[in-house]
Design a protein around this nucleic acid. Structure first.
Lengths: 341, 341
DNA sequence: AGCTACAATGAAAGCGCTTCCATTTCTTCG
DNA sequence: CGAAGAAATGGAAGCGCTTTCATTGTAGCT
């Protein structure tokens, strides 16, 4: 008890350490370490004594020291463009849930759709020696790639597909999404076809897939409007106005996200367009509000949370030394046909 | 050059260390450390030589080791209930932007509106020795409080107000919000008043503020529906149906979030209620979609990003040893009157 | 030239833990 | 009951950095 008081005092200036616990419990530091990390190797009586001391002192192990010594941090980092734009939020939740239940912690980095920020972030992240890293997309600066491959840790790229990932990728083909949407619109048949979209690599791929599918059948109109990701309701509204002003005839429009589609919808609604006869709108993401717009939004649904879950599982398997993790894990998507197409 | 090759080889199994850089640059480890952290103390010629070696080897300092030695991690942790429910996403973006520009990194924890998960999360976070921690709300388990105060680091509680924060708080009074909304509704005058809300502490406070303001004037009806946070569109819709089925007369409804309000709105719309004459709905949050519902949603706006920004600034000041950080930093809110009240 | 003052660098210790290997203590069984 | 093997524990070294304090180099002045 006297000892405890003394240490408590010292503690004022610095927190309790594993050595303090050892002294108080009358064992060596190694034993305390084992009590914490591999309790099955410690005799129940000893374990109990140690745990009592830990509880009494409020000892919290220092994972910096632990990580330095063991070269394992139980930390997984993820870089996403943004967390405010809904699209990635559920992926993060999925990721987090899966990691936490495996005893890992998630460290998040926000790149703001900016590749050079991704590079800086990657550097900062690697400096903390995570056990694995998750990146959004397959487009990275070559410096980022070099740094990453040099670091020799498991890497998972999410939200896109590629035959040659850095390590493993979990996602889907955005071009295929564009193509699917074009097909959906073609069956219904419109006089004009257009795409309203942002400029991030994935949105661009969706547009290209859309355009490709319509090649030789129809020219795809693209509003002349610089739309930086994340694109907004307003962007959609303005772009739709442009489209509607520019020509006549029925028109099928593919939007790069449900948010943009919602804006486009609002403009169309205000002008009294008849949907889906005169105007079709297809969004992307199947956001919460999609079933509740007027008319309800037809969109492409993909299980965003599942991307996170699968990414987490892949990276955990890799950390456990599993060599058989697939290089490309595909996520399903499909069109949810509602009122606008 | 020979040396470089040799180390490159060793590197295959372990990454380059500061000592390696020192050897290659022909200086001592301390000098390399200074070149990285306090370059102004190193002679330009030497600095340049070291930087060249760092660039060539792709050396990334180990912040675990650095943090262990210096007792500073440049890490700030934040615990929020969720990231998918929009409400906190912008706060996080604000927080992150501010921290990154100060050279800090944000580590996010998701508590899922669960206090015991908050406790576990706090323990896991403290184990990484962040320089500061940000928590959502002022309601915590006593174990969490004990652990936090014992850790002796700057703490900022966000999204609520209190005269006695653990350390510093950045937020606003939810009771005041409820009261303000009640006042707004009272001026217009309805036969009935109701609240549709989730069960997290802050939503409950908003409800209580609402009820208090109406005390002696009207009874506030509360749908009998268990709504766990985060509440959903569906919750709002179901609750509104209950309310509408249960009685007659015009009714003023306060919803605990815009999402819930949106659901309530949809139900009202479907039933052909005239708004805001027969039915008033006021949401909370002023989410992106609020101006675009039919009719546009009247709601309470608060600058969510600003909470993050201010929280970051406070914690950074505290880390810098500033003793004069206010205990309570208040964030403004106001009603945005649109079509539903 | 000699002395002071400051700039630049280095040596050694230590941050708090884990790993490896050695040692002690307990079981078990012939 | 003693040897062998397993279970439980401990000692020492080291993870990669920063800190403190000491040393060397370089001007600047008389």
């Amino acid at each position: 008890m006297a000892d405890y008081e003394k240490i408590k005092q010292n503690t004022a200036s610095g927190p309790v350490t594993l050595a303090d616990i050892a002294k108080l419990a009358g064992v060596s530091p190694v034993t305390v370490s084992r009590a914490i990390n591999t309790p099955q190797l410690v005799k129940p009586r000893t374990l109990e004594a140690i745990e009592r001391v830990i509880a009494k002192t409020g000892y919290v192990p220092n994972l910096l020291a632990g990580g330095l010594a063991s070269r394992k941090t139980r930390l997984i980092a993820a870089v996403v463009p943004s967390v405010a734009s809904t699209i990635f939020a559920e992926t993060i939740e999925g990721l987090n849930a899966e990691l936490v239940s495996a005893g890992y912690q998630l460290m998040l980095g926000l790149s703001g759709y900016d590749l050079s920020r991704e590079l800086e972030l990657t550097r900062a992240i690697l400096a903390r020696r995570p056990d694995g890293i998750i990146l959004t997309g397959i487009t990275h600066l070559k410096e980022t790639r070099a740094m990453l491959t040099g670091a020799g840790l498991p890497i998972v790229e999410i939200w896109d597909s590629t035959p040659s990932p850095l390590d493993t990728a979990v996602g889907f083909s955005h071009a295929a999404v564009g193509s699917l949407v074009a097909g959906h619109l073609l069956i219904r048949g419109y006089d004009r076809y257009a795409q309203i979209g942002a400029n991030d690599p994935r949105a661009v791929q969706r547009r290209d897939g859309f355009v490709d599918r319509l090649k030789g059948i129809a020219e795809v109109e693209l509003p002349e409007l610089e739309m930086n990701s994340p694109s907004t309701f307003r962007d959609g509204r303005v772009a739709m106005a442009q489209l509607l002003d520019k020509g006549k005839g029925s028109i099928g429009v593919f939007c790069s996200s449900d948010v943009v589609a919602h804006g486009a919808l609002a403009e169309a609604h205000a002008r009294g367009c008849k949907m889906p006869e005169d105007l079709a709108i297809i969004g992307f993401g199947d956001f919460d509000f999609a079933p509740h717009t007027h008319p309800p939004l037809t969109t492409v649904r993909i299980d965003r949370r599942d991307i996170g879950t699968k990414a987490a599982r892949s990276i955990l398997r890799k950390i456990d030394g599993d060599e058989n993790v697939e290089a490309m894990i595909n996520i399903d998507f499909h069109i949810v046909a509602r009122g606008t197409a």
